[in-house]
Amino acid sequence: MDLKPETLAEIEAAIPKYPEAQSAVMPLLHAIQKDQGAISNEAAEWVAEKLGIAPINVLSVVTFYPFFRQHKIGKRHIRVCRTLSCAMAGGSKVCDKVLSEFEAELNHASPDGEVTVEFAECLASCGSAPVMLVDEDLHENLTVEKAKEICDKIKAEAKA
């Protein structure tokens, strides 16, 4: 395992926060996924070893939670909310626009590897629907035009 020093520091800081080591599984997986882009089998075994639990107990967590992934995705992770309030406000059109801008298919990395677009379930921002997350940033009150601007910005950043 080749983890960045700051990832290792984050991991060492997380474990003693919990009365029982197994509780640190999710914070460790968050740290590793941020560092490596996905959770490999090797990483799952490493976490198990680190926390003194069986590898299956780590893998069962990785496979249960939608945010944890075993395969890498595009450089930017775009999650468009599909749940009712966003759908009533046009979330579906926003998603279509983002997909077509990157010539991408839902849930697959775009051909240029820049983005992976997925649907998300209610992002707890329904009052400013439709919304989407680009990595950690929430974009609200989207329209097809606004979605295009955001895509243009991502493309420009990719070239820079």
């Binding site: 926060k17 919990y18 509780s23 999710m26 914070p27 997986l29 968050h30 249960f64 939670y65 939608p66 945010f67 944890f68 998300a120 379930e121």
Partner: peptide
């Protein structure tokens, strides 16, 4: 002590 624990989209 208070500890912040992050979920994973479930």
């Amino acid at each position: 002590e208070i500890v912040v624990h992050r979920g994973a989209a479930a």
